[in-house]
Nucleic acid binder design. Structure first.
Lengths: 283, 283
DNA sequence: AGCTCTTATGAATCATTGA
DNA sequence: GTCAATGATTCATAAGAGC
């Protein structure tokens, strides 16, 4: 099976208008978060975030197939000592728009950004909001079952400090046999809490969820050969994940720089397909 | 220092009216969750949940000291394939009422209830919403620093299967030294994600967050000798935690049975103090 | 004692059945 | 139809039995 990846430059509110209805199987994106300071695409004021988002999500709703899903990775900022409410308001507004708020997954960031404040601890989680058009939708639960390594890891986690010390002194005394037993247990279904480390490589961009995150949702909520859209593609993590999993990818970004990075991330074959080949130009 | 615990039977909306303003340092509670079916106290319809809650939280706001905090443990249900929005609406309504939505902590339930459905994984987290009256409030971050044993455990959890296998084969090759290094690291501040197992003992009640949960917030958000209120005290976990940490406890519950359980949980001295001693009766 | 295995069960959710 | 009750699903713990 051959798959394609495309990166289109522009505002997704406009670019998507050239897409036919029900042409995308899955949308996974991490939109620019609200920010009071900047006046650019990535700096929408919190009070205007819902208003800014809705015309775009209307296009998402139109181009998504009935069996499709929309995964929105987002987290409200704290400002002036308080959490903003624009994400809550966005969820309510999206339901008004016709989306079903199917689930809220928690991405637990194991190695979150360090910091210390008098009234707040480090923020170690983000929302992954799952919206659908219908109550029945594509979901391949077996594709994301937790492999045995993770399970053994969680068993190791439950060891007390004494166990660790004993392990250290009585090397190979039979403890290893136990581990072997654990490794033979069957796979288990995950929960709605995802434990993923943030990427710590020397990337050029600041945002960027770890590739594990879009991978997990792509495996779960689409089939090989399907089309995955990221309307705020940024550095292209979603496209890279889609490509590696045998899905067609479409990325959109306002920034030409990000579009270049996304093309790079998704593979060299993109150089030949910068213009929309499947969906045609705007009329 | 001597501390007292009281359990008062009745609806907290009425019972709290006899409390003076600004007489409580911390409120930690897990209210009855919305339920469409039952018509009892524990079965408020989701559509009426906010309306039901607001008069009660108005009393919470009145009796709480300016430096105090209100911790609300809650999670919306899924019904008909979709998450309810009443918790989101409640957050917005509480802000309208004058509360500051300071933070949202995630309680990650490591051993959540089993189950399998075509469109949903097991629900492994609940919200712990943190509301305050002022931007500056009592917060003892040092009181909840993560001890070394836990930290080492979480490092072990991150080991990959290969690491375990390597450990198993190359016994004592230097891997143990790494563990020793981990064990000598200083204490670390936690994040806003709490990893606690649900209690699994043979308890008589269904509700009940684990005692670790109120303990953590009581240590963080109050001082010894302070007064902690749980207006939906249930089986008394909050009172037990408060008592063991040297805080005065006040519990309220509509159910006489739960009041008895709460008195039992907080200690035998309660038998002498079932009636309000400090705050007096309603006029 | 200590390790291993078994068993019970917990703020769940959905589809189906029946009133 | 609408609403209430029941069965099926299935994992992390603790408690207890057995060796």
């Amino acid at each position: 099976m051959t798959t394609t990846s495309q990166v289109l430059q522009g505002d997704c509110a406009e670019v998507l208008q050239s897409f036919p209805d029900q042409s995308v199987d899955l949308i996974v994106t991490s939109p620019p978060y609200a920010d009071r300071r900047k006046n650019t695409y990535g700096g929408i004021a919190p009070e205007k975030y819902v208003e800014w988002f809705l015309p775009r999500s209307a296009e998402f709703l139109r181009v998504l197939k009935p069996s499709g899903s929309f995964i929105l990775n987002i987290k409200e900022k704290a400002e002036n000592g308080e959490r903003h409410t624009y994400v809550l308001e966005l969820i309510l507004a999206l339901r008004q728009q016709g989306w079903l708020w199917t689930e809220e997954y928690i991405w637990h960031k194991r190695n979150c950004y360090p910091g210390k404040w008098p009234n707040r601890f480090r923020d170690a989680w983000e929302r992954c909001l799952h919206f659908t058009k219908e109550r029945k939708f594509t979901m391949n639960q077996e594709a994301v079952m937790v492999p045995m390594g993770d399970w053994a890891g969680s068993r190791l986690k439950s060891l007390s400090k004494n166990d660790v010390v004993r392990y250290d002194s009585q090397v190979g005394s039979g403890f290893g046999k136990n581990i072997a037993n654990w490794l033979e247990r069957p796979m288990a279904y995950p929960t709605n809490v995802l434990h993923l480390a943030t990427e710590c490589g020397n990337k050029n961009h600041s945002a960027a969820f770890p590739q594990n995150l879009p991978e997990w949702f792509i495996k779960l909520l689409s089939n090989p050969g399907d089309t995955v859209l990221d309307p705020f593609v940024g550095s292209g993590t979603t496209l890279k994940a889609a490509h590696e999993l045998g899905r067609n990818g479409i990325g959109i970004d306002l920034s030409a720089e990000y579009c270049d990075m996304a093309r790079e991330a998704a593979g060299k074959q993109l150089a030949l397909m910068e213009e929309p080949a499947i969906y045609g130009q705007k009329p």
